[in-house]
Design a binder for these strands. Structure first.
Length: 569
DNA sequence: ATTGTCTGCCCC
DNA sequence: ATTCTGC
DNA sequence: GCAGAATGGGCAGACAAT
């Protein structure tokens, strides 16, 4: 297929915001794709070159795209970045500079989807010295034989960000429309096939053959499965209203998600939330599984939490994050930063999928098959109740035990891989606040192109009469002026305070004070204050405060210590 | 050999 | 992770 | 209510530059 044809579809999708319209455009395209041999083109619709479960990486992002664009167009990197600041989309910058270039050179239009896929697939294979240059050639080859529009999408796909408003849900609906009769049963069949396969090209091929083929897709232990995600609850009462009574309450642990598999051959495999395999990084966990779970095959959903091996004190996420991508010194880390596995669901057991079984059944089974061993592996701490007071106590206990909060679950619900569902909720305590002064900012991208969109925050170091950076915030502001403090309003306030501009970043005079809410204070290697905020959000302006009225470094340190103490128990 | 920059459908 | 928005 | 698109801190690893 000509790449140009695909790009026309991208353009159509980008233009039409309605999901129904997108589905129609896509399904018409898929009807054509049915007759193509290479169904991998569907990966290009997803903005990638491999199926979801693949761990292959391009190793290319913004900086290298800027370099590649500069090379292919002959325009300096600095100028490319300037355009990027104004346009907010490296894809569109590519379109502009390559269109100009094309006016001067003759070129025959022959770029095919196969060629694009070919070059993209070569990127992850390159390793060692000289890699970057080789990658640059592969990209340049594509860019120089591209029209402006084609260049736009070459760049966007390299950034894994197509910006066409299409994700798996829309593609699922389009597959149904193009291959099957549009009804609930068929949609469910496609979704469930995708949940198990994590490969849309494969699902599309099956859908072409009919619902029978889709329903043959099996859940196989040892193959990655997407995890189910939770929505936020406002309170215990809100939780009960949304999941019903009685409800299941479980501790919400501050660690990382682990999908633990034991396959037909008895091999244990561990996957993260994003389907990366991390078995090698956690030999300790493999051992716990082998020793404490007596079953032939299974898939478990769990959270790994770190603790201090001496004091047995639970550690915050930041401390164990070293383990997740580790390749070297794994044995050493295993001893220094042990993890405890808290299992909260079982999705497959001894040859049978449990995805459609009610949660009550799954959680009861789970408690039968795990031999609880504290600091190694255990079923997550749980309370099933219809009593708000008891639930409230359980929640308080979770916080006292140094956990993030509780999960609230419906007893009858199935397990929906990859979905954020209303019958699994998370509840965390109210957050902390600081007033901080804005000392810098960065121009945004996409829908926030041309306005400042990320704001550098500083506290005040009274002793040295200096402002010290303590992090950035970008969320919490409104897109529309009428709704509250908006990006444009804040941009206008900061505009005439700008003292320096480099690329997309600006430095501003410390004048504008904002109220920030955050979840935690962490030690920081990147900010000059030595601290950073976890999950910072801007709520509103504090025009009544002068820059020197903001939180002082001393106050930040005190607050940090106060939080540390809470961890001690 | 050391330091700096960049990347990650990263983890949260 | 959090948040906002359009559908 | 959901999906999509913006963006946060911080980590290890890989490669380039010095």
């Amino acid at each position: 297929m000509l790449y140009k044809e695909l790009c026309e579809i991208y353009e159509e999708l980008e233009k039409n915001p309605s999901r129904l319209a997108k589905t129609t455009i896509l399904s018409n395209f898929l009807k054509k794709l049915k007759h193509e041999k290479n169904k991998e083109i569907i990966y290009l619709i997803q903005g990638k070159a491999f199926p979801d479960y693949s761990e292959k990486e391009f190793g290319i992002s913004e900086q290298l795209c800027i370099k590649a664009l500069s090379k292919a167009s002959g325009i300096s990197s600095k100028e490319i970045v300037n355009k990027w600041r104004k346009i907010g989309d490296l894809g569109k910058v590519a379109e502009e500079v390559m269109t100009k270039k094309k006016q001067n050179t003759l070129f025959s239009h022959k770029l095919t989807t196969e060629k694009v896929l070919d070059n993209l697939k070569k990127l992850p294979e390159l390793i060692g010295k000289g890699t970057v240059d080789k990658k640059m050639s592969l990209i340049s080859e594509l860019l120089t034989s591209s029209s402006g529009i084609e260049a736009k999408y070459i760049i966007r796909i390299l950034l894994s960000d197509l910006r066409i408003g299409v994700a798996s849900g829309t593609i699922r609906d389009a597959i149904v429309e193009s291959c099957l009769e549009k009804n609930e049963e068929n949609t469910k069949a496609v979704q469930e096939s995708y949940d198990k396969a994590n490969d849309l090209a494969l699902v599309f091929e099956k859908a072409c053959k009919g619902i029978g083929s889709l329903n043959e897709t099996e859940l196989i232990p040892g193959h990655p499965l997407k995890v189910m995600l939770a929505l936020k609850a406002e309170s215990i009462q809100d939780g009960f209203e949304r999941v019903g009574k009685p409800a299941v309450f479980e501790y919400k642990y501050d660690g990382f998600r682990m999908l633990i598999n034991k396959d037909e051959k008895g091999k244990v495999k561990i996957f993260t939330r994003r389907l990366d395999e991390v078995t090698k990084q956690f030999p300790d966990v493999v051992k716990y599984i082998e020793e404490n779970i007596d079953a032939k095959t299974f898939i478990l959903d769990s959270e790994a939490v770190g603790y201090d091996p001496k004091t047995k004190r639970y550690k915050p996420f930041q401390d164990i994050s070293q383990r997740i991508r580790r390749k070297y010194d794994i044995e050493k880390l295993e001893k220094e930063l042990p993890v405890e596995i808290n299992v909260f669901d079982v999705l497959y057991y001894n040859g049978k999928s449990l995805l459609n079984e009610p949660f009550q059944k799954r959680t009861e089974l789970l408690r039968k098959i795990i031999k609880n061993k504290k600091y190694r592996i255990q079923s997550s701490h749980q309370l099933i109740t219809d009593d708000e007071k008891k639930a409230e106590e359980f929640y308080k206990q979770a916080l006292k035990d140094n956990q993030e909060g509780v999960m609230i679950k419906n007893l009858t619900a199935p397990y929906k891989p990859g979905a954020r569902v209303g019958y699994m909720l998370k509840l965390k305590p109210a957050e902390n606040e600081f007033d901080l002064v804005i000392t810098g900012a960065e121009y945004g991208t996409g829908k926030r192109a041309g306005t400042l969109s990320s704001f550098t925050l500083s506290c005040y170091d009274k002793a040295n009469d200096k402002f010290l950076e303590i992090g950035k915030a970008s969320t919490g502001l409104k897109e529309k002026e009428e709704e509250g403090l908006s990006y444009t309003e804040l941009t206008n306030l900061l505009k005439h305070l700008i003292t320096h501009e480099t690329g997309r970043e600006v430095i501003v005079k410390p004048k504008i004070v904002v109220r920030i809410i955050y979840q935690n204070i962490q030690r920081s290697p990147t900010y000059e204050s030595g601290f950073a905020l976890r999950f910072p959000r801007i709520t509103h302006l504090r025009p009544d405060r002068t820059p020197k009225d903001v939180a002082t470094l001393k106050e930040v340190i005190e607050e940090y210590k106060r939080m540390e103490l809470k961890i001690e128990y």
